[in-house]
């Protein structure tokens, strides 16, 4: 049996080696070599210039993660208390936007909020001043929330739906009002879902380049845009790009370690 299980995992292991381990090794290799192939720390030092952009990326990703959490938590709780058939329908509605391509969605969004876009056309036609929406920080955050909200709702919903109604009633029975019930029962019991929701929103947000590229304009350049430019675009420099990528990866890794540390502290044993 043991042997069988080992062999069954072989395709994935091969996949991992080909498409994760080797590319990762290449990034490390490029990050620490110059164009002549010799070892150097120059790239890493130069990548340091992008720390303000990185900080801005983290800042925007954090805000959109918080917004997602605030929007998703009550909604996920609401779904989780519905009957099974209603739950299925609502989950489908949540997933519905995901059936459309991510790029298309973002393009559609930019068409909506452009200076001469749908919203502003409507506003001017009824005699109001047009709003400056596209190419702002707000637009980037909105784009992130818009695209990644389902990734927050789903893990929250799937953990909340496992909370027995009687557990919630027990809290009320012992004197907890709605707020206290959430604070001391439902939130702590949802921590694993909250953690994975945060992970699933924060990571793609911090590294996105499409959203900031399409909605943020030149002022809201994020670390993802810089890496794209270095790897594929105008500022082509593979070594430099690799070093910047490495920097981003380390930041994400550290963030995840912190979150997972919180997870195991608060919820030890509750996942049994």
């Amino acid at each position: 049996m043991k042997m069988k299980a080992k062999w069954a995992s072989a395709p994935y292991i091969i996949w991992m080696i080909l498409f994760t381990i080797i590319p990762l090794a290449m990034i490390v290799y490029f990050a620490f070599t110059g164009s002549d192939g010799s070892f150097t720390l120059e790239n890493v030092k130069n990548a340091g210039v992008h720390i303000p952009t990185l900080a801005n990326s983290i800042y925007l990703a954090l805000i959109s993660t918080v917004v997602c959490l605030v929007v998703a938590y009550p909604f996920a709780y609401y779904i989780s208390r519905k009957s099974y058939s209603k739950q299925k329908m609502m989950v489908m509605l949540v997933m519905l936007p995901m059936w459309m391509n991510f790029l298309l969605r973002t393009h559609a969004l930019s068409a909506l909020i452009e200076d001469n876009g749908v919203i502003n056309t409507i506003l001017t036609s009824i005699g109001l001043e047009p709003l400056k929406m596209i190419n702002t920080q707000g637009a980037v955050i909105f784009g992130m929330v818009y695209n990644f909200l389902p990734y927050m709702i789903m893990p929250l919903y799937s953990i909340m739906t496992k909370i027995d109604n009687r557990t919630i009633e027990a809290a009320a029975d012992l004197g907890a009002n709605t707020l206290q019930t959430h604070r001391s029962i439902i939130v702590p019991m949802s921590v694993p879902g909250i953690i994975s929701g945060i992970t699933m929103v924060f990571v793609p947000s911090v590294s996105t380049f499409v959203i900031s590229g399409l909605l943020g304009g030149s002022e809201n350049y994020l670390i993802g845009d810089i890496i794209t430019a270095q790897m594929l675009g105008s500022a082509y420099n593979l070594h430099y790009g690799s070093a910047t990528s490495l920097l981003l990866m380390i930041v994400v890794l550290v963030t995840m370690i912190i979150f997972n540390g919180l997870d195991s502290e608060d919820t030890e044993g509750m996942l049994a």
Binding site: D164, R166, E169, A170, A172, D173, L174, T267, G269
Partner: peptide, 19 residues
């Protein structure tokens, strides 16, 4: 509401707080 009633309940299958 239940949290204002002067009675308490032992639930079916206990409904303890797992965390």
């Amino acid at each position: 509401p239940p949290h204002k009633r002067q009675l308490n309940t032992v639930f079916q299958k206990y409904a303890l707080f797992p965390h």
